[in-house]
């Protein structure tokens, strides 16, 4: 099973966990980190501490490239080759991750997550009655 950490602005990470618990059921082995009130170095320290649980390999989800959360993760990534970083986290992506993290290897899981993310944003047409 591949564990994960969600690093997001404000209360987003916890809100995702709460929503996932309502949709998917109990979520284990997913931690969250917020940037709330943290300076750049403090945020890096908080992310580094959470990455300890991914020492054997894992996925970090962050909200968007260019934000302080992604910046902190990117800064720490070179020293952690077993950790993969995915930006643009949303509920479809997290649901895909939960559904497949037990059965897929890391490369395949990451590919699937990214594809799911790409497909998750679309314009929906009203149903034909």
């Amino acid at each position: 099973m591949i564990p994960a950490v969600i690093v997001c602005h404000g209360a987003l990470g916890e809100a995702y966990l709460e929503a996932l618990a309502g949709i998917y059921g109990e979520v284990t082995d997913v931690a969250t980190v917020t940037n709330e009130d943290l300076g750049a170095e403090e945020l890096e320290s908080a992310v580094a501490a959470s990455l300890e649980r991914l020492a054997g390999g894992g996925i970090v989800f962050t909200d968007y490239f260019g934000g302080s959360c992604a910046n902190a993760c990117l800064t720490l990534l070179p020293a952690r080759p077993a950790v993969r970083l995915i930006s643009g986290v949303n509920l479809p992506v997290l649901l895909y991750y939960l559904a497949h993290r037990h059965e897929l290897g890391m490369d395949e899981l990451v590919r699937g997550i990214v594809n799911r993310g790409h497909n998750s944003i679309r314009e929906l047409s009203p149903p034909v009655l």
Binding site: A40, Y64, G66, N71
Partner: peptide, 10 residues
């Protein structure tokens, strides 16, 4: 800004 180039700045 102590976070330098981040979301609010960009």
């Amino acid at each position: 800004d102590d976070r330098l180039l981040h979301g609010r700045i960009l």
